[in-house]
Every structure is written in structure tokens, then in C-alpha cells.
Computed example of a mutant assay.
Amino acid sequence: MSKRNGAKMEANTEFALRNVEVKARVRQPEKLREVAAKLADSPLVELQQNDQFYKRPAEAGDRLKLRREVGRQPQLVWYSREDVSGPKLSKYRLCLLQDEEQAQKLDLLLADCLGKAGQLKKTRYLYMVGQTRVHLDDVQGLGHFMELEVVLRPDQTIEEGQTIADDLLEKLGVSSDDLITGSYMDAYHAQSCS
């Protein structure tokens, strides 16, 4: 945690966190919510998220966003992953911001330095299944999606995470035909261009 001019920010600066991630389109959201609820170890958490993405250098899979959630601290999120379908490694760093005022200042700074790539709003239904965050997302203007994030422990391999993800995909009844590449922002831009 660092403090500068009374502003407090918390960040994981020692290393990037890791998870194995997979995204898919959802054709029957209510049915998938029922299955996820049965598998979950804890109660459902419903989140209202507003993500502002910023332009980045042309490094494949490298993204930066400012996330605002109702009732939670804003956070700056950097992540990097390959744009392929199916389970893949995602490395990320988080920086919790003190409050909305700090988020607004950071948003202006990043917009001036990098430019804005776009904004997404979604309702996220979060279920925890073991070490995996199961997200069922209703993305404004895009539709229904599912995202698995198998949060890897430092001693776990990517292959172990992929095995966990594959097992959960099967239990959730997610078809390989519904797996997607890229981010929601990529899908939004592709939809806007068509």
C-alpha cells in the first residue's frame, strides 16, 4: 500500500496474479444459473460493473481497464492473455483506488495518455466453485456470456488449471461451439463494425 498526498492506493506489485480463463456465449442463461448455483460453494453475488477500457500498444492480449462496481472500491486492472478459445493463462495486476474521486482523476489521466477504447456495462452473477470464479454475465448491447477464472495458487501449473476448467465446462454443459476468443470489448467492436 502506498500513500501520496493523502490518496491511498493498494496494488499487488511483486508479481502478476495468474488464472486460467475461458469465455463462452450462453444460449440459456437461466438454466446455466441453476447448474452453477448447484455447484457453488457459497451464495451468489450479484455485481453491477462498469468497465472503461483504454487503448494500448499493439501487444496481443494486453488490456487495461478501470472497473467501477456498485458498493465497492474502483480498481485499475491490467491483464494479458492469448486471444484463443478454450482455457488459457491470464496474468493480471490489480490496483484498488480509494474512492470515485480518485477514479475520475485516473480516468482523465489515462484518457489523455492512452485514449479510450470503449466502455462496457454488465450485470455479473458470481458463483465460487472451489478455486474457480464462475461469472455469468449479462453484457449491455452484447448478450449473455459465461466466464471461468480458475485462480491458480503459486504452486499450481497451467495444466492443472486447464484440467479444472475443462471439468467445470463439462459439468456446466458448455459446448465447445460456444467458446469465444478475445474480450467483451473485442466482441463489442466487432459487432459495431458489422
Rank of each mutant, 00 (worst) to 15 (best):
V20E: 00
Q75E: 11
L47V: 04
A7Y: 10
D166N: 15
N19V: 05
C193F: 10
R93A: 15
K91M: 11
D177I: 02
V45A: 13
M1R: 05
P74F: 01
A117C: 03
Y125C: 10
Y188L: 12
S183F: 02
A37I: 08
T132G: 07
S192K: 15
K122A: 12
L168A: 05
L44S: 05
K38Y: 02
A7S: 15
E69N: 12
C95L: 14
L136E: 04
A36K: 06
K91Q: 14
V45Y: 03
G173C: 06
D177Q: 14
V134L: 13
Q191I: 05
Q156L: 03
L47G: 06
R4F: 14
E170N: 12
L169H: 02
P57Q: 09
R93E: 07
G143F: 00
D177K: 12
Q140T: 11
T13F: 14
A111R: 08
A7N: 12
Y127S: 12
E59Q: 13
Y79G: 04
R68M: 12
E14P: 00
G182C: 03
Y127L: 07
S85C: 07
E14S: 14
C193V: 13
L152D: 04
Q102D: 14
A103C: 09
A37Y: 03
C193T: 14
E21A: 08
V70S: 15
G161R: 01
K88Y: 00
S85Y: 01
D112S: 15
E21G: 08
G143Y: 04
V129Y: 02
G141K: 01
D155K: 09
E14T: 15
D178A: 04
R27H: 14
K171M: 04
M128K: 15
E59R: 15
K88Q: 05
E34L: 14
Q52F: 01
Q162A: 03
L64Y: 01
L32S: 05
E170M: 09
Y92L: 06
T157P: 00
Q49V: 11
Q140E: 15
L126K: 08
A37F: 04
Y125E: 13
G71E: 06
K31H: 11
P87L: 00
M9Y: 04
